[in-house]
Design a protein around this nucleic acid. Sequence first.
DNA 1: CCAATGTATCTTGTTGCCAAGTGAACGTAC
DNA 2: GTACGTTCACTTGGCAACAAGATACATTGG
Lengths: 233, 233
Amino acid sequence: MTEKVILVDHLISEIKKGTFQSNKKLPSEHVLADQFKVPRMVVRKAYEQLQDLGYIYSRQGKGSYVQDSKKQIPLILSGDVSFTEKMKELHFPFQTITIFCEEIPFDKKIFQNLNVGSDEKVFKIGRLRLIDELPIALHTSFVAQSIFPEIEKDGPGITSMFLYYKQRGFVEFGSNSSTLNVIFPTPTEREILQCSNLVPLLQVESECVDKNSGQVLENTVIIYRSDYFTYVI
Amino acid sequence: MTEKVILVDHLISEIKKGTFQSNKKLPSEHVLADQFKVPRMVVRKAYEQLQDLGYIYSRQGKGSYVQDSKKQIPLILSGDVSFTEKMKELHFPFQTITIFCEEIPFDKKIFQNLNVGSDEKVFKIGRLRLIDELPIALHTSFVAQSIFPEIEKDGPGITSMFLYYKQRGFVEFGSNSSTLNVIFPTPTEREILQCSNLVPLLQVESECVDKNSGQVLENTVIIYRSDYFTYVI
DNA sequence: CCAATGTATCTTGTTGCCAAGTGAACGTAC
DNA sequence: GTACGTTCACTTGGCAACAAGATACATTGG
């Protein structure tokens, strides 16, 4: 176990240093095993973990190669500016796709936060954020039909929730305290964000509030790929 | 690969559900392999990943057991209240140990932040935060000798940096924007925090500023074990 | 009866061998 | 010369057999 960990540490450091950048090809398992005087299985395990972590990929018969390194995106984590605006400011080739808009079954926490009864309809709207065509965050909004009656019909076409709210008479927005969590992706999230299972995600839960009335407009859960973002609070 | 991931997902969900809580013993590799109709090696790989993630541990000849689950600690992430005070409020059996106080070689970024020249002495003071005797965060303060001349001598005995600063005439503190990152532990950090290599850490970098003079008192890097904390900002 | 020792059968851990994919070098037919 | 097929060397992937630790139980000797 400890041998594998040492190897993984070493290889990550070498990858970050750019040692293999020339042809991007890592030493073969056999060669590395001889170099470090460990059984090949130890190298295999190390390489497998690096695959799970998204650092490398292996092809049978060819070899193992380092994954293209990702650009680091500084992200201002404050609730009163829309994600779209934040990205536009930074001049990233940014894109949003709405990937789902569906009613959710009763969930105590969400319904309580939105201040609606268990018999009312609440929709979850999922918007995928892409930079350079790569998915980097999933923005899920929970919205009550009682506040936005047309949400079921409008949902799929919304690109900016803030804009949608403004068009319906809400002027200024705020957010109460946000909760941060570091999680690993579920199978669904892995597919949506196209990441491997050991890429940590930063999960931010918050509420969007109308500053005038104090009414909670939506319950928001955003998951960011932590390998793409640096957060500034 | 995909079979392993499915198994890992399933097992984590079962562990969180508490399915194995009765005797804490997981099914043997052979049994689970038969149940899921996969080779034993697949189960082995899944169990190994669960070990790396800190969910289980295995003993040769005995079996695999679920690791005791950790309590979740809500943490307010704001710079103007000391860590000690935050914990005291929550009534956790909390403890701080200073584990190092040593001069650091010149580092452009840190020295610039502290606003000191390359020939001056800067010390790093590491304080380990424990709850129930378990290390949960490492608090590293970078302090310039030019501001606190006795820091080398005083360092090892300091339990609260805030208290130390107050005793030296600084009254009110603030912090500028903090930077958040999700990282995996280095070998040193693993040893200090007693965690496995796949436990994500939340790294928070900030500066502590004297509100009166605007002078930067210290440069702070805190790493929190993400499996213990829920963060509130 | 009791304690020590062997044994069978569980468990996880390790290793060595072969399968399978790839591509370059080489030979051969045309 | 060129096109094609064969071989070979090298890669990662997978598996079955074995090693080693733990434990319960039977056996044995006093």
